[in-house]
Design a protein around this nucleic acid. Structure first.
Lengths: 124, 124
DNA sequence: TTCGGTACTTTGTTATACAAGGTATTAAAA
DNA sequence: TTTTAATACCTTGTATAACAAAGTACCGAA
């Protein structure tokens, strides 16, 4: 079924749109290192891969939204635990609003599109 | 206030994620030409510009999701009215599901992040 | 001392949105 | 009849971002 490529592609774009926001949400719950962030997002069907996440974390850190600390791992090399900063929390609360507005926007055109077209020969 | 650049940037990304879906939603309500699509989306705070929309409409047409017809304008050059095809409708209904899943995903991490962190020293 | 697992990082490619500029059509003014 | 203004469609160049893939490094156990 290659038909689904179209939908799959759009789905990917939607996911991308909320990626940054999602990562900040995860970190609002508590400090995490890359692999655990990936896992948590995967659990809710938001797919991210290393090559995407690492640069993004670095970008957010450089913007002052995140900081990190090293922590020993029970097995393997040390882990870089990211945590959200005060500034990050502020911005995140704005993103919360942004998200809710977006949902409202989409829902409004979505609802409109589900109504019968109505007899409007009016708009010419 | 350059602080808002971060949030503004993320907001833009979110909008982009739903762009394609939004356009299809608008066209599910009825046939429209480019400028009217832009206006309808602007009305619900989803900003699109010509340079984005035209290539996107062409892409969707080439994918068989849309078709178009020319129609006289009361003033100025003729308008290219886009309409959604049967295939487009099918795909759109899948996108409806995709959108709802995304909302659910985000809401679930969002809700989790608003709870008190809880005393979990458990996940090591 | 090598092997397997885990973790972090970088590089090159591709897709996409957008700004900016361009072409074409129409009707009305000059 | 030429010019202007408004409307509409289209294209090109640039910047950003995600991703695949490959690379580096650490650690403990065989």
């Amino acid at each position: 079924m290659e038909t689904n490529t179209i939908v799959e592609n759009s789905r990917t774009q939607m996911r991308r749109g909320v990626l940054e926001y999602s990562i900040l949400l995860v970190l609002r719950s508590g400090d995490e290192y890359a692999s655990s962030i990936i896992q948590k997002l995967k659990d809710v069907d938001i797919i991210v891969v290393e090559g995407t996440l690492y640069p993004l974390l670095i970008r957010l850190k450089n913007l002052g939204m995140l900081s990190y600390r090293w922590e020993e791992s029970p097995q393997g090399p040390p882990r870089k635990y990211y945590m959200i900063t005060d500034k990050g929390r502020e911005q995140l609360s704005e993103l919360d609003a942004t998200w809710q507005e977006l949902v409202k926007s989409v829902e409004s055109i979505r609802n409109a599109s589900l109504l019968p077209p109505a007899g409007d020969t009016s708009n010419f």
